[in-house]
Design a protein around this nucleic acid. Structure first.
Lengths: 191, 191
DNA sequence: GTCTATACGGTGATAGAC
DNA sequence: GTCTATCACCGTATAGAC
């Protein structure tokens, strides 16, 4: 990918994370990314919606990677998920609660207002869910259970990250991680 | 509360639920609510932010009520939570995924950009969490566990409602409800 | 590929008549 | 209490020079 284009996407990702889609203007994107002002519509002929779509897909891929590498630190799934949640909680606090993933806010803003952005959000979440699912299968979970459980884990992460950002504290995420770990352990025993 | 003011708040609540805060304009609010156009700043001297704040608090109270009455249908907490989730899943589908609570989107949009709205979101979530917590205490859960567990339940609801809205299917919420019920049952046994 | 200038609609907010 | 008129500003998008 072109260097300028990548720079636009990277900076847009950060803006969407902080402000969401509707609050982020094109002027702000070119200002923050330092990209040539006249080249925006050259790289993204469809305008803002295309910038959003490409940014969200790119972000989803990076998030899935982060989940994958985070989970690979420990073999046991319950422990690995707990560790990952703790590291995210620290990162959210360090960012002054402006981090937490660019997807959630935009996904809600566009769930019914832009089909293009909605579809790309679905794909991004699917990538993240797959990362959890893969680790579950490695841990010996049966395939269909792994899919459902991965969706549940994703929901817990998203919900507790939301509460952490709103309450300006990493604790909701940390407590959710503890409950999630306990639940997964109870499933591992039964197998 | 005044009739006109209430009508503005009710309609704003629906708009925030569908579109979020930044996508909702004052013109749209007066159009949709049928309220006298000139009276907006009479009832809400601080403008849009005040409309948002009062709407979110009002919505939070109503959501907490709904949780309370929903949970009171069944005695057992695990069963009650499951039943509530199922009824929300149906409601979300019936709304074409435009429902799911006005808080989540606005809470994320304003988490770091408006202190006033952030504080009112926190209060709204606290009301909802209290509704879960109260039921847990009634079920014999120890106080501090009840608080933490209520926060976890709230996170699971928020996260899985998000996924349901994005994926245009009530299933993420339904599956999360099943996992949540199983986890709660495992805690009940231990007590 | 990148620039400047600009079109055009919509935004939140205010003033002053009634 | 409610209306209309109007403000200054910002949004996305486009045109045309270079």
């Amino acid at each position: 990918m072109n260097q300028t284009k990548l720079e636009i996407i990277e900076n847009t990702s950060a803006l969407l994370e902080r402000q969401g889609y509707n609050a982020t203007g094109l002027n702000q994107i070119v200002a923050e990314s330092g990209a040539p002002k006249g080249s925006l519509y050259y790289y993204f002929p469809d305008g803002k919606e295309q910038i959003g779509a490409e940014t969200l897909l790119w972000s989803g891929e990076r998030m899935a990677e982060r989940i994958h590498t985070g989970l690979s630190q420990v073999e046991d799934f319950g422990e690995a998920v707990h560790l990952l949640a703790m590291s995210i909680a620290n990162a959210i606090e360090a960012s002054n609660f402006q981090a937490g993933g660019p997807l959630t806010t935009v996904a809600l803003e566009t769930a019914t207002s832009s089909e293009r952005l909605n579809l790309v959000c679905r794909e991004a979440y699917a990538l993240m869910q797959s990362a959890f699912e893969k680790k579950l299968v490695e841990n010996g979970f049966e395939e269909t259970l792994a899919v459902h459980l991965a969706g549940y884990v994703l929901a817990v992460f998203e919900g507790s990250i939301l509460l952490s950002r709103v309450q300006h504290s990493g604790n909701p995420l940390r407590q959710a991680a503890a409950h999630l770990k306990a639940y997964i352990k109870s499933l591992e025993v039964e197998e």
